[in-house]
Design a protein around this nucleic acid. Structure first.
Lengths: 224, 224
DNA sequence: GAGCGTAGTGTCAGTCGCTGACAAGTGACC
DNA sequence: GGTCACTTGTCAGCGACTGACACTACGCTC
């Protein structure tokens, strides 16, 4: 309902602001304002220490309007994270069928990281998103909500991979692979958020190293 | 705070009801009554269609007392499931160190299933628990809460396995294995709950078959 | 450019989950 | 039997969320 930006495109509009219609632009600005206000307040006073009233007030709308844009307080906290995950999912869908499933997943993460930052920055400053990410991993209610969304993403990934490989839906292997992959991503994400590592290169290396362990993890006899 | 049943034991009490003291028994009965009332109401009107007031009223206590026993409405819905998972975790801890990690997990599930039913039945009828399990998997709020608890269980399992194998906490392999295992359990659990399979034997076979796929899932080249 | 329909917004009132504070009842222990 | 600590109920209140209704303003047509 919100944020649908696919319309008939007038060829090369002179003023770049005329594309989506005045009303649509206003809605988009309201939505962005709500996200920005929310994340700033969360960073300042914490998630539970911030009321929806305060968020709405900071974005100059009524509380009622807030709930027309977001289904709940959780929603706005996870809005940017949602963007990131959608972006990753699309990257997976675009991987060539020749790649093995694990390679496809791995390459998709890496390539989605190359391009996601500007998309984030168009809504909120990157540093604010990093603080939000930490908050998500330390606030019980947000951990739960985020895990639920992640589980849904896993379902979709499982389906995509099963289709790629031409497997019937009952085959458990795609699900297992996705679960293992997801476990790695959760773990590395935890480290990234908590250690506040700004060094993206180092983080990529670590993630890659972890992903390399997926194969060996299932070989019995770990004791070297 | 609640349900601590470790106290100095008077040697062989004549009436088996005298062990934990009158007050403790009363608390336990209140707690069980709350769980039973809650699950019955949930089964009847759904989770969101039931208010805490109604649960408290059905158990003949005040709403305030309900919240002294359970941190929230979610808590009472997941109370029995919590028992099951604790039981499983303890079973894992007791597996001999000679078993490979995956074997230990697999054997622990199977053996915990052998003994959990009576523990459940002492609180609520088994059939009611099954309906609750279905409800958990279809109610967004409960899915989220349950996933959070499961994630905590995964953390503890990861730690136990790392210790068993004498691995340092940074080694990602225990986490990956647990994630894959957990993915299988979530999937089979989903089928069990939704298909309402009463046939426990069939369900065990299916779970075992899924677990057998964990190894192959990580071997590349699935296409037979 | 006036007018109309509709989409977006604010206000209001209400429900429900949840909590702190205080007062009253009740098992436990000497 | 009396004191003490633990449980409980009542009350008052906050915050998340929702339905209903009236109002404003965009967008489209004539």
């Amino acid at each position: 309902m919100h944020a649908t930006q696919d319309e008939t495109e007038p060829p090369s509009a002179p003023s770049a602001a005329l594309r989506p219609g005045l009303r649509e632009r206003k809605k988009q600005r309201t939505r962005d304002a709500l996200i920005r206000s929310a994340l700033e307040l969360f960073a300042e006073r914490g998630y539970e220490g911030t009321t929806v009233d305060e968020i709405a007030c900071a974005a100059d709308v009524s509380q009622r309007t807030f709930f027309r844009y977001f289904a709940g307080k959780e929603d706005v906290a996870l809005a940017v994270q949602q963007m990131v995950e959608t972006h990753f999912f699309e990257a997976v869908c675009e991987r060539p069928a020749a790649e093995s499933p694990l390679t496809a997943l791995r390459t998709a993460v890496m390539s989605s990281w190359d391009t996601i930052e500007e998309a984030i920055a168009s809504v909120v400053p990157l540093e604010l998103h990093l603080r939000t990410y930490q908050m998500i991993q330390t606030t019980p209610q947000l951990i739960a909500a985020h895990l639920r969304r992640t589980a849904e993403l896993e379902d979709r990934l499982t389906e995509v991979i099963a289709r790629r490989e031409g497997l019937p839906p009952e085959d458990p292997r795609p699900r297992i692979l996705v679960a293992a992959f997801s476990g790695v991503m959760r773990e590395t994400g935890k480290r990234w958020g908590l250690l506040m590592e700004q060094d993206m290169e180092e983080f990529r290396r670590q993630t890659a190293a972890y992903l390399d362990q997926i194969g060996p993890a299932l070989a019995e006899n770990w004791r070297s």
